[in-house]
């Protein structure tokens, strides 16, 4: 054990000397800040009403305009003004008195057709179209209820809308998993670098003369890489907690995260020991991690989803099972790789 700890301490001292761990934390901070920037931007685009009470003024005409006015009364973001004929509505649109026009006419089939005109390629177009969609969907719902007798299965009544933060789901299902898993990949990459660097500089030969076995060297390097991961994740979770985002099941999340780190570090060590140089090793490692992680995320109950459910406090026995499975998987994978390396050596 002592020699393993020595190797691990040496690794961490190297990291400290280069101060690169600070850069890693900086990158993560940047990603966290940038994702919130991103989500605010995206939300403002999909749901402009969520940011400020934008009101869209619609100039309407046609024989079904009265119903459209009814619908507008139910939609907070849109108001409808009636005009004599389509030409008058269009004139209002042209002189900027309205954001859009809607010409609603009843057709012979018993339906209503609405011809909507929205301004082309201006900054507000997206906002206007989103509000128009809300208005028209409400209109559709009202018209549908009137025709409910002709339907074999009437639509279900929709519950009243309530206020909610558009960032809530994003924070738990994207931001927290990203912040928790970034240190995992960084640790794996560190192990690849650490082993290929020893090979490249020829210092591994020196280590072999020292009274340690290959297995102990790998153990030490892996130990250092795994040890620095949960601290970073914990830092993020605490920061979020301070920021008013409660995170549940923190110990379980850290356990799952440590298991994944061990798994990834094991894979990284295996690749680094087998690959000819750092370029090949890093390339293979990137591909392997993409594949592993992408595959695990795509399969139901993957680690990303498990972390989201743990953090949001919706965990059930299936989530616990996921954690147990990953812990077992990590142990098996790491021991397997270690055995392989002890048998075949590094870089041979």
């Amino acid at each position: 054990m002592g020699s393993r700890l020595t190797v691990a301490r040496r690794e961490i001292a190297g990291l400290r000397a280069e101060k690169t761990i600070l850069l890693a934390i900086g990158i993560q901070l940047f990603i966290a800040a940038f994702s919130s920037f991103l989500v605010v931007g995206l939300v403002s685009m999909y749901d402009p009403g969520a940011l400020d009470g934008a009101e869209v003024e619609v100039a309407a005409a046609g024989d079904a305009v009265a119903d459209l006015e009814h619908a507008a009364a139910e939609v907070p973001g849109a108001s409808v003004t009636r005009y004599e004929d389509p030409a008058a509505a269009r004139a209002a649109f042209d002189r900027n008195a309205a954001d859009a026009t809607a010409i609603a006419t009843r057709d012979e089939g018993g339906g209503v057709s609405v011809a909507v005109t929205a301004p082309d390629a201006t900054v507000e177009t997206t906002v206007i179209v989103v509000q128009l969609r809300d208005l028209l969907r409400t209109y559709e719902r009202i018209e549908r209820v009137e025709r409910a007798d002709s339907l074999s299965r009437p639509p279900l009544p929709v519950p009243d809308s309530t206020g909610t933060s558009p960032y809530f789901t994003f924070t738990y299902t994207v931001l927290i998993p990203v912040l928790v898993f970034l240190p995992v990949f960084i640790s794996g990459s560190l192990v690849v670098d650490s082993i290929t660097e020893e090979l490249d500089r020829g210092t591994l030969e020196l280590l072999r003369v020292a009274p340690v076995t290959i297995g102990e060297i790998v153990d030490g390097k892996a130990l250092a890489a795994v040890a620095i991961a949960p601290g970073q994740a914990l830092l993020w979770l605490l920061l979020l907690e301070l920021n008013g985002t409660p995170v549940a099941n923190v110990p379980t999340i850290l356990l799952l995260m440590t298991a994944l780190t061990t798994l990834v570090v094991g894979v990284a060590a295996g690749i680094a020991a087998a690959a000819p140089d750092r370029r090949a090793a890093q390339f293979l490692y990137s591909v392997a991690v993409l594949v592993l992680f992408g595959g695990a995320t795509a399969v139901a109950g993957g680690p990303t989803n498990a972390v989201a459910r743990l953090a949001i406090d919706s965990a059930d026995p299936a989530t616990t099972l996921t954690v147990v499975v990953y812990v077992a998987l990590a142990a098996v994978a790491y021991l397997g790789v270690r055995r392989l390396i002890t048998a075949n050596g590094i870089g041979e």
């Binding site: 649109f93 042209d94 082309d120 025709r147």
Partner: peptide, 21 residues
């Protein structure tokens, strides 16, 4: 639904136009 008019009573044609001004 088999009855399409009742299921989708509203048909929308969206058009983008530049304001005259």
């Amino acid at each position: 639904e088999p009855n399409e008019t009742a299921a989708f009573p509203v048909t929308v044609t969206l058009r983008y136009a530049a304001r005259g001004s």
